[in-house]
Nucleic acid binder design. Sequence first.
DNA 1: ATGCTGAGGTTAAACGATTAACCATACAGA
DNA 2: TCTGTATGGTTAATCGTTTAACCTCAGCAT
Lengths: 321, 321
Amino acid sequence: MSLKKVATELGVSVATVSNALSGRGRVSAELADRIRRYAAKAGYVPSQTARALKSGRTDTLGLVMPDLTNPLFPRIAQSLAIEADRMGLGVLIADSRGSAEEQDRALSRLVQRGVDGILIVPQRGTTPARQSVPMVVINAAADPANTVSADHIGGGRLIGAHIAQLGHKDVVLIGDPLSDVQRDRITGMTEALAAHAKIRTRSAPDGLKDLVDDIRDGATAVLTTSDLLALRVLAELSRHGLQVPGDVSLSGIDDLPLSQAMHPQLTTVAQATEDIAERAIAIILSQIRGEQAPLLGQTIPMRLVIRQSTTSPKPQQGSQI
Amino acid sequence: MSLKKVATELGVSVATVSNALSGRGRVSAELADRIRRYAAKAGYVPSQTARALKSGRTDTLGLVMPDLTNPLFPRIAQSLAIEADRMGLGVLIADSRGSAEEQDRALSRLVQRGVDGILIVPQRGTTPARQSVPMVVINAAADPANTVSADHIGGGRLIGAHIAQLGHKDVVLIGDPLSDVQRDRITGMTEALAAHAKIRTRSAPDGLKDLVDDIRDGATAVLTTSDLLALRVLAELSRHGLQVPGDVSLSGIDDLPLSQAMHPQLTTVAQATEDIAERAIAIILSQIRGEQAPLLGQTIPMRLVIRQSTTSPKPQQGSQI
DNA sequence: ATGCTGAGGTTAAACGATTAACCATACAGA
DNA sequence: TCTGTATGGTTAATCGTTTAACCTCAGCAT
């Protein structure tokens, strides 16, 4: 069903049909009505392709992620897909599989496919190559412009403050220092805890094995930079007979489904992925439409989710000789 | 950079440029070479949109999933995205958010966007509405044609046989009976265990609370239909002081990242998502190209991953007075 | 010279929608 | 009667590629 077919079958010109359906040109009310009804009945669906060719816009966004296997991907993808859909946009996915080169290849493939804009969660420590279409960076730490990110530092502060308030005086922070995001989270935790507690920092995954020593040495809480890492820490602790939260408090970040399935249920910090998606798409849409408002890095607050894995430290800290 | 621009700048016709670049028409070797070089230098990129309009094909597939938040989604999406990419296809995602109606809406949106075919992981118990483009169903249980699925029954058998071989005589199976896939997995487990053990079946999530009783009553293994459920079961068991695998063996299915992070590491069954993706895309490509070979449901074997959560039952089963 | 063949191009139509520019009719005002 | 102006359409160009059909020589045989 093309415009032309509808037109000839109705004995009018394609322009009239187009005008009637779009409501833009001048068509008498009754003819417009007749056309609309006929088109609906005949199942006419405008060709996005033809429209794209004419308008130069495909109403499609590209989404590039470093690793689709990343447990956070589903959340972001879902929020983005839903919001994009609300805005009448499609989302084309691409996996940048580990390397910066693959990331750039993914970018240019998307551009060649004609996407109107690109949403990208960049590889650790890389700056994606500039493209000919608007680009919004998601969840990069402290990038200059066109960035929408969860407030990782703030998130770190949130959990740090929670732990400080519980009265912990000796805590260990563990995360992967190669990741900007995780570094930011550690920074936040440190800020919130510095005045209240001794801080030990370990880097994952190598530092996992030192954790038990830290605890024997007096640490009463372990703050991790991700839920998955927290699960791993829990494994390590329980292998050595340490109870959470009895002997140690433990926290994650991300609020993955597993944080509710594990025992004890994990205290964590959630990203407002819907808000991130909404902002990201708003920004990219405004850029696509040429409103070059230099929207600077936007930061979306995180939310503390207190569950069972954190409590006040045991009063008797006597075991350390 | 359009064909036309390249053509006029080189003083030839667009047809010649097109022919030279595609290698299809008749162009003298040296002219073709000159054109190719110039096009490359000028950064000419063919418009996919125009090509799509002319050819009627967009080289794009739609991927519909019931819930992008499903922990299996990343794996499938990644495998599919990579394989599609290898075949020169793009992947447009859509979330069917819970309801069968939303699923059908997602489908028709994709069709309107002009995808050449659709890959769908259907909602539980729904049969997606037939569309005007080829469709391949992924991971539906026992559907008729055009289905590519992990062999869930076989996977169930695999883990069942493993447990039988370990010598368990009394096991409980737990899963969500509303899900076709999970039912299939239970079926497989049952087949493999029927001759060797007493089988108790519980449905998740309500049956979780009965598990401890089952074990006190003599059950020595709990087989779940998913890793996430296994984690939940582990939580329930340890809340009641039961050790895995000391007191009970436990297994999952899916081989999610968490199965390695938890303690003990989970014995599980993995889907060969790459193989599934490859088959699914091969099928849909052949349909798009009109080779209507009535490819019937294809089933991809699963793979047993033995880790630490399963062992032989304790010899002394004396406590059950 | 004349006709043929083949190589190497060019012309033009088509895909489907949008839209600027144009045309025709009716009716009002002078 | 003639001009002016809505009103309601139609024509045709355009976006960038692809491709069937056609044109134009050069070289060759008759």
